[in-house]
Write a protein that binds this DNA or RNA. Structure first.
Lengths: 265, 265
DNA sequence: GAGTGGTCTAGACCACGAC
DNA sequence: TCGTGGTCTAGACCACTCC
């Protein structure tokens, strides 16, 4: 990473800096390596630290850098591909591996907003199961799975096991698993999905081990059963480390594209 | 929007400001309305302008605010849902409406990176068609569709029309349309797709009418034909205004969820 | 020319991790 | 205790839009 002087260009300094830094980390650094600290880089390029940080912000958003307080700035590993399309990935009981882990469950009347999204009357009881998704030893997503009572009511009750069967007070995590077990019996005949950019709220940020305001990919999934909306899942994926993949079952899975393929065009 | 004083809280000022501003624009402002300017807001909340701007940055990334130089900061319209899943949306000739408009076409040997992504030998001729997607009168995406010569070679040649047939030099836009017409004849039997966060490079930014560094959703689609990769499309969607939707054909399309549904949980 | 957001500066202090 | 990134300040000037 040389001591490049910034030539007078019409583009902003921070953008030019980003380009220079990007070229440097591509050619002179490898995954996990720490790059020089912000004060040093700012001095080296002859800019204020705030300007340098603007460039680092971009590269961090692109998933090329990871900044750790007290440690330094590291070259990030390539984003991990996370399958979100196939039904088994999101629906309880479908996946062999344990990709989703139940964290919590709250039972509460639906707020006006939530009721509208679920297509049920406001105030109806809604089970909200909170789950986290772990990939390669790291939490990559959190999810709130909202299930209106009326959807569960169409299912036969199941036997409770363990502590709950013995009349003890079930934990919230245990309650969540019970709801999920009941959902396993529900046949899903359709799912509609959308993806948009958002920022992590306080609770999500904590679960994702990131500061509040971190960019996330918000995946909203509507599960339909018998022509009705049976459940609504809102999942937030870490945008810095995740690449969401939407495969079609039974099709050829071609080789993954390098993250930087688009700069090659 | 009152003159709220910031209480001493463990969370950063800019994050608290975001929450206060979000509540204000939800309750006191409507779409398209201008909110007070940055210097006034900073004074009103007793913070530096840079701190206030951090909060506005968040809200802009969430698609809640739009900032226009020389004009002011406006409350943004809700994000538009953009279908990206169905085959007809991306593949040439499939869609009745003209959602994609050809802009340019370059014919060049594949760079090492691009060749690797396409699964062809480096240096093979690759047609790259540049298109833009227009929704509701606004450019919401740009795309580079890369087609290796070997994929086109498996198709019968088609008659050229208009200027090209008369031996004149075809424009690059015309070349692009010719490639697209040939692609219409190719039967696609599979597509694999991924979505990740990126930033708009200079050329993309210009087409999207946004400054460089703007967050975009990068949709990479691999089209397979006869078990081979026939084309690679890299599309960048404006993250501020777009919500990508992935519908499954033949399924119930349930009501869209409000953009702020996740804050209701 | 007046007003807006966009960029940039040169500092300061804090929170966190390693030693 | 030291070095790191995270936050915040109080200014400055520029680019753009509108009148």
């Amino acid at each position: 990473m040389g001591t490049a002087q910034l030539t007078a260009v019409p583009e902003p300094k921070y953008w030019h800096l980003r380009t220079v830094l990007l070229r440097a980390i591509d050619s002179e650094f490898s995954t996990g390596q720490v790059i020089p600290n912000e004060r040093e880089l700012a001095a080296r390029f002859g800019v204020a630290r705030a300007t340098l940080r603007q460039a680092l912000d971009q590269l961090e958003m692109e998933g090329r850098l990871v900044r750790r307080r007290g440690i330094g700035t590291l070259v990030a590993a390539p984003r991990v591909g996370v399958p979100v399309s196939r039904r088994e990935e999101g629906w309880p009981g479908g996946s062999r591996e344990q990709v989703w882990q139940t964290v919590d469950c709250v039972i509460a009347p639906a707020t006006e907003q939530l009721a509208k999204a679920l297509g049920v009357p406001a105030g109806e009881t809604v089970y909200t199961v909170r789950r986290v998704r772990v990939a390669q030893g790291q939490t990559v997503a959190t999810e709130s799975l909202h299930v209106p009572d009326s959807a569960l009511a169409r299912l036969p009750a199941i036997r409770l096991s363990g502590a709950a069967a013995e009349g003890e007070e079930p934990g919230r995590e245990e309650q969540g698993r019970t709801v999920l077990r009941r959902l396993e019996r529900l046949t899903v005949d359709g799912e509609s999905r959308s993806v948009e950019l958002g920022v992590a709220e306080a609770d999500e940020a904590q679960l994702l081990q990131r500061p509040p305001g971190t960019p996330v990919l918000v995946v909203t999934t509507q599960y339909a059963s018998g022509g009705r909306l049976a459940a609504l899942a809102v999942a937030t994926y870490r945008a810095d480390t995740c690449r969401l993949t939407f495969g079609e079952t039974g099709l050829v899975e071609v080789t993954p594209v390098a993250a930087s393929a688009r700069t090659a065009s």
